[in-house]
């Protein structure tokens, strides 16, 4: 299936089509247009460089939400062997908006957990569009505690618009479920690695994100509120989402600059969906290094450094700094 084109890619697609047209024309009519073709091909390289090299935050939001963007299960299949899914929270039910289980990474047993979107409408309904209920977070917690018991590293894939805003979710304690994960994750005596692969929407994303290493795919986003939500509050109009995407600093390069994530995992030009295999190998390289480094740390070191890592996040000053003494007369 041809990947769906994104609006910002239009000039590239048009130029590609034009080149193809000229080529077929050359073959059919036996007219030499190679000079023209070479010129256009050179322009295509330049254009790709310009467009993919200068992607606006909103373009990345579109890619992060792309219907064909690889999901947690796609990456699990490529990164691990012997994956076995474990289901249910043992309290209420099984929330298919989160998947998890055991697998081997580089011959080392690991616990893998991630938000799971559907590939089509039918699957999306079953998986609630990757928006978990409390039982999803409680399943994740159960599996993480199990990982700690057996000394396995925990690897989380973040890909959700957010925790589900529903009646039953509130009744069953959505807040508590998320909060509990934040607290428990901060104390696990095994390595925890989180990778944002698509959308990282607010607390519902963070509930799988209290990790020793946090990575984001180049076109993933991570934010406290969706650009549409922010635009509604700021400009009273969701149509300003594009501006909000810039103001809110939600892209991987933004989060790297803010010092929130450890690194950006590069994406294939045009987005991860264009080549799953290549994308998986990029993730594997990063994950391999992270697990290798974290395996060397003692359980106490892991917990301590995780505390230091999150405790350092914040930007504050003092009244006196803002208004240095001596200026007033």
């Amino acid at each position: 299936m041809m990947p769906e084109e994104m609006p910002f890619e239009k000039p590239i697609i048009e130029l590609r089509n034009k080149i193809a047209e000229l080529k077929s024309f050359t073959n059919e009519k036996d007219i030499d247009l190679s000079g023209e073709i070479t010129k256009l091909e050179r322009r295509l390289v330049q254009l790709e460089e310009d467009i993919y090299g200068n992607m606006a935050p909103w373009d990345r939001v579109q890619l992060a939400r792309h219907t064909q963007r690889p999901t947690t299960l796609d990456y699990i299949k490529g990164l691990f062997t012997d994956f076995m899914e474990f289901r249910g929270d043992r309290l209420y039910g099984d929330d298919e908006a989160i998947v998890g289980g055991v697998a081997a990474f580089d011959n080392q047993p690991v616990t893998v957990i991630g938000h799971q979107r559907g590939k089509d409408t039918k699957e999306n309904i079953r998986r609630n569009f990757g928006m978990p209920h409390p039982e999803g977070y409680r399943k994740a917690l159960r599996l993480m505690k199990q990982a700690e018991k057996f000394g396995r590293p925990i690897i989380c894939f973040i890909d959700t618009k957010g925790a589900f805003p529903g009646k039953e979710a509130e009744e069953r304690g959505q807040s508590e479920a998320i909060a509990r994960n934040l607290l428990e994750m901060s104390g696990f005596k095994v390595p925890v690695v989180s990778i944002v692969i698509g959308e990282g929407g607010s607390g519902g994303a963070l509930a799988l994100g209290v990790a020793d290493r946090i990575y984001m795919l180049e076109n993933a986003t991570y934010s406290v509120i969706s650009p549409e939500g922010a635009a509604t509050i700021l400009w009273k109009d969701a149509a300003h989402a594009q501006e909000a995407a810039e103001t809110m600093k939600i892209t991987a390069p933004d989060l790297k600059e803010l010092g929130i994530i450890d690194d950006v995992i590069p994406e294939i030009r045009g987005g991860a969906h264009r080549n799953l295999e290549a994308q998986t190998s990029y993730i594997r390289n990063t994950l391999k290094q992270a697990i290798y480094d974290l395996n060397k740390e003692s359980p106490e070191e892991l917990v301590h450094k995780r505390f230091i890592k999150f405790n350092a996040i914040g930007d504050y000053g003092y009244v006196n700094d803002a208004n240095p003494g001596g200026e007033e007369t």
């Binding site: 909060a179 934040l182 607290l183 901060s186 607010s202 607390g203 963070l206 994100g209 209290v210 991570y222 934010s223 406290v224 809110m248 600093k249 939600i250 989060l255 803010l258 929130i260 995780r306 505390f307 999150f310 405790n311 996040i313 914040g314 930007d315």
Partner: peptide, 14 residues
């Protein structure tokens, strides 16, 4: 404060 404020949830819980 965007994602920085989101991270305060993790910070306080930690």
């Amino acid at each position: 404060e965007g994602v920085v404020s989101l991270m305060q949830m993790a910070k306080t819980s930690t």
